[in-house]
């Protein structure tokens, strides 16, 4: 038998499984969004477009499937005789793929949304600039998961560059997936008490991520920080986000490199 790398098989399989989940997820969000549009038409309240609307939920969703990655897939693949390394590479590639897929679908749906609203001439105003409305309606204690990165991000709010929005969206949800995977791996290896430490670190990662996008931090745990936001040029934010994702993935690899498989 010759030496074979299995990570591409793992990547393709995990991508398809998670894409299937994601399509379900997106269809729920789309339904909710359509209902909100109808409500909005009747009440006259402003509403964010789909890319804006779905962003917060997508992050929560990615956090959850990231956590599942360790528990559901690591045991499963080692059981099939796949090394932890191949699992790690495959799962990382699949996560990147899923993040792009969700971002692309969300962007396309948003484009479609604008076209339909344009054509039907419905009396509704969509924009991504209703920062205040959204933040007021959100509870600060859980706001780290709400679409602040996009709400407060000057780039997405004022940018009409779709491609840029899409990449931001991708990096944002990918970094949250990585955070979820990090928490899941920590629990998997160290059990639930040490797992809390991983949640603490995860929150730190999320705060750093928000800072990178120039978001005002309103999440109460970070009140001790001497600043509430930092200004980075656009490419700096992108680069920073990619580096942050790389660092989190590095941690995950260290945690899972020689981990004992749960039976």
């Amino acid at each position: 038998m010759k030496q074979q790398s299995f990570f591409s098989k793992v990547a393709v399989d995990m991508f398809y499984v998670q894409l299937k989940w994601s399509l379900w997820f997106l269809s729920f969000i789309l339904t909710a969004h359509i209902i909100m549009i109808i409500v909005s038409i009747n009440t006259g309240n402003p509403l964010g477009d789909f890319i804006f609307f779905s962003h917060g939920s997508s992050k929560i969703y990615m956090l959850v499937i990231g956590i599942i990655s360790a528990y559901a897939f690591l045991t499963f693949y080692v059981n099939q005789g796949i090394t932890r390394k191949d699992y790690f590479i495959g799962a990382s590639l699949a996560a990147i793929g899923v993040s792009f897929a969700i971002a692309i679908i969300a962007t396309l749906l948003t484009g479609l949304e604008y076209i339909i609203l344009e054509m039907t001439n419905l009396p509704i105003e969509l924009d991504r600039g209703m920062v205040d409305t959204v933040i007021e309606s959100s509870d600060n204690s859980v706001s780290i998961f709400l679409p602040k990165a996009i709400v407060g991000s000057s780039i997405l709010v004022h940018s009409s560059n779709w491609l840029l929005s899409m990449f931001m969206y991708t990096l944002n949800i990918l970094s949250i997936y990585a955070v979820g995977w990090f928490i899941g791996s920590g629990y998997y290896r160290f059990g639930w008490i040490a797992g809390f430490g991983f949640i603490a670190l995860a929150i730190a990662f999320i705060v750093i991520g928000d800072l990178l996008w120039g978001t005002d931090i309103e999440e109460p745990l970070s009140n001790w920080l001497p600043f509430t936001s930092i200004d980075l040029p656009l490419y700096g934010s992108f680069l920073g986000a990619i580096v942050l994702i790389g660092i989190i993935l590095g941690f995950i690899r260290v945690i899972t490199r020689r981990v004992t498989i749960k039976m």
Partner: peptide
């Protein structure tokens, strides 16, 4: 351990 060739040849049924 973490040997792709060997791991592929071992099945653990429990």
């Amino acid at each position: 351990f973490e040997n792709a060739r060997i791991m592929q040849s071992v099945a653990f049924i429990y």
